[in-house]
């Protein structure tokens, strides 16, 4: 999980750890449910070490749950920078593409059957994502995330379809 995400969630006001976790879960929907409970605290500790966040203890017990986390000025600056960054998650197509090329070159496997198997798997994932998306209420934040997953899978499936067409032609011409 990106550190900056947790930082940004503190930008509005100082919060407890569990509050941040709750906000994350609400934004991620069913995906957030699978998240490790402790992960948030790992990130918060790292941020504290980097000097982007400080903690304030509450007057009650000295357990993690009652710590309040606050952005430092350095942290605020980092958040502002992060919001304006335009980097996008890296695609990972090269590995699959090379898998097909290598299999064909070495005669180890039929590229088409690799494509078909991958396609089947992606379709199943698409189905799961779609089901999750439909379970969300209209307008829920998590629904938007799920739609993004669905659309990405759709794009990937289209590319796989193109791969299938291409490798079929390649086979018939050799």
């Amino acid at each position: 999980m990106q550190q900056e995400v947790v930082l940004a969630l503190l930008a509005k006001e100082p919060s407890h750890g569990y509050e941040i976790r709750a906000r994350l879960r609400s934004a991620l929907g069913p995906i957030g449910d699978a998240m490790n409970a402790g992960q948030v605290y790992v990130v918060l500790t790292r941020l504290e070490k980097a000097g982007l966040v400080t903690t304030e203890s509450t007057t009650t017990k000295d357990s993690s749950d009652r710590k309040t986390y606050v952005l430092t000025p350095k942290g605020q600056q980092r958040v502002a920078e992060w919001l304006t960054e335009v980097s996008w998650p890296r695609p990972d197509l090269a590995e699959f593409h090379l898998k097909l090329v290598a299999a064909a070159a070495a005669g180890l496997a039929d590229p088409l059957s690799i494509v078909d198997t991958q396609r089947r798997e992606l379709l199943r994932r698409l189905r799961d994502a779609q089901r999750a998306a439909m379970a969300e209420e209209d307008g829920a934040e998590a629904g938007l995330l799920l739609e993004g997953i669905v659309l990405r899978l759709q794009a990937d499936l289209r590319w796989l379809e193109a791969c299938a067409r291409s490798w079929t032609t390649r086979r018939s011409t050799t």
Binding site: M1, L28, P30, I31, A34, M35, P89, D116, R119, R120, E121, L123, R124, R125, R127, D128, A129, A132, L145, L146, I149, R152, L153
Partner: peptide, 22 residues
């Protein structure tokens, strides 16, 4: 040219699909 049965769940989890690794 192809026929696929789509019953059964997928192998990955949704979190991975969303980019929430680690």
């Amino acid at each position: 040219v192809d026929e696929t049965r789509l019953t059964g769940g997928s192998t990955g989890n949704l979190g991975a699909l969303a980019g929430l690794e680690g």
